[in-house]
């Protein structure tokens, strides 16, 4: 479970304050597949980063009672000047997983071929996301934080992500931020719509999608 209590995030930029999230309370259960909806700038990514403890909340708390991945997206998590393999080595050390097993899995899953030996900064954003997905699946978290990157890679890659992450029987907890209502309705079983700092929970994703589209 993930417990979110009175979560608040305020950004101060050029003497203007912007309340991105205001008093968000939320429990995310094991196996729950939560869709995050909201317009650009509504705070979807911010919430994901707060849940992933990449950012520090202005006030409030986030408690993990399961193993939560880092936010999977087009950015972050890798050192651009190092090769995919060297980044993998670093990740395997800090998450204490066996490097050889990790490499074998990622080589097969991400299908990056020779690119794995090139600096990550030369990767396309799709390749970066594939590396991030493959690595995080290999580490095997209970909960995956996914920020808008589902539609990367080819059909085969999709199918693999589907069988490892999205399938009910895979039993993963997912928190997905996306604008793709179709995919969210397909994969998720509950939703959170963010608007002007407020978060409204829905137990039906289609309802949430409707209310989001009317915003």
């Amino acid at each position: 479970m993930i417990e979110i209590r009175d979560l608040r995030k305020i950004y101060r930029m050029h003497n203007r304050t912007q309340v991105v999230l205001d008093k968000v309370n939320l429990d995310i259960q094991m196996g729950q597949k939560l869709a995050l909806m909201g317009r650009n700038g509504a705070g979807k990514s911010t919430l994901i980063r707060l849940i992933g403890k990449v950012e520090v909340p202005t006030s409030g708390t986030v408690k993990h009672k399961m193993r939560v991945s880092w936010p999977l997206g087009f950015t972050g998590a890798f050192q651009g000047s190092l090769s995919g393999i060297d980044n993998m080595r670093f990740v395997s050390r800090i998450y204490r997983t066996d490097f050889v097993k990790l490499r074998n899995f990622v080589e097969e899953f991400a299908e990056l071929g020779e690119h794995l030996y090139k600096p990550v900064k030369t990767y396309s954003s799709g390749m970066r996301a594939r590396l991030a997905f493959a690595l995080s699946i290999a580490i095997d978290f209970d909960c995956y934080l996914i920020d808008e990157v589902i539609l990367v890679g080819d059909y085969r890659f999709h199918e693999r992500c589907r069988s490892y992450l999205f399938d009910q029987k895979a039993g993963r907890t997912l928190i997905i931020a996306s604008h793709d209502a179709g995919l969210l309705t397909d994969v998720c079983d509950s939703a959170l719509v963010l608007n002007q700092g407020q978060a409204i929970s829905y137990s039906n994703v289609a309802d949430a999608a409707n209310s989001y589209q009317s915003l």
Partner: peptide, 8 residues
């Protein structure tokens, strides 16, 4: 595809 074991 063999899934690596995962003490982390």
């Amino acid at each position: 595809m063999a899934h690596p074991a995962n003490p982390s």
